[in-house]
């Protein structure tokens, strides 16, 4: 099966070559979507053997992932993996994430940082931001998953088409999950390892996500 890995990247010159080298043994095509980085991310990704798609202006992670999905689908990928460019996930877990799709047991597999694997979550994130995000997803979007914001996921073609990302920034995580439930896809969650090198999104980004989801609903 043709597996493509989409890696959104913005100013990831420090990590991108290592991430690509880690990922390549497990996929047939590595697609880096450079979201108008001001550093050498695009050049380093190309040199490391990835296909590089470059946004002419910075549009956010959601937009970069959708660009990667469109390209992967056009190239005939049968499984698409989303993987972060900051070296926080373990590429060795890609086969476990794609196996349920290859075996036709699931259409979409979400990674979860709350199912027992080792993570070095900052306490504020673990005990305040994530529970609030999970509650919001459950109450307002009907999402029954243990991790509301994990960027490590795998799709088959049907799932990638049914979960088209319209939210260009951080609301895409909730949007993908919500669309997957709404489209009646076979959903699976698997534990993934996360090693944080920085705090990531602050609490204020959570409010931005809620605002983006609301505006997206209105202008749909």
């Amino acid at each position: 099966m043709k597996i493509a890995c989409v890696i959104p990247a913005w100013n990831e010159a420090k990590n991108i070559a290592k991430v690509i080298a880690d990922v390549r043994p497990y996929v047939q095509e590595t697609i880096v979507v450079d979201d108008c980085s001001s550093d050498d991310t695009a050049a380093l990704a190309g040199a490391a053997g990835a296909v590089v798609l470059r946004h002419p202006i910075n549009r956010g992670q959601g937009a970069a992932l959708q660009t990667g999905n469109d390209y992967a689908l056009a190239q005939g990928a049968e499984i698409i993996v989303h993987f972060d460019g900051d070296d926080q996930f373990r590429a060795t877990e890609i086969p476990a994430m794609t196996a349920p799709i290859a075996d036709d047991r699931a259409d979409i597999v979400f990674g979860s940082r709350f199912l027992g694997r080792q993570t070095n979550f900052p306490p504020l994130k673990r005990y305040l931001i994530m529970p609030l995000a999970k509650l919001f997803n459950r109450v307002f979007l009907g999402i029954q998953l243990s991790d509301p914001q994990c960027g490590f996921r795998a799709f088959n073609r049907r799932a990638a088409t049914a979960t088209k990302i319209m939210n260009r920034e951080w609301a895409h995580n909730s949007e993908i999950q919500s669309n997957a439930f709404r489209a009646g896809l076979r959903i699976m969650e698997l534990p993934v390892t996360v090693v944080y090198h920085r705090f990531g999104l602050p609490l204020s980004a959570g409010f931005q996500v809620i605002k983006d989801l609301l505006i997206h609903k209105i202008i749909k």
Partner: peptide, 18 residues
């Protein structure tokens, strides 16, 4: 407008694959 701008940026990226 922002959504349309994103769509244009994405199309340019897809047409200029490196």
């Amino acid at each position: 407008l922002d959504r349309q701008l994103t769509e244009i940026a994405r199309q340019i990226a897809l047409q200029h694959k490196k």
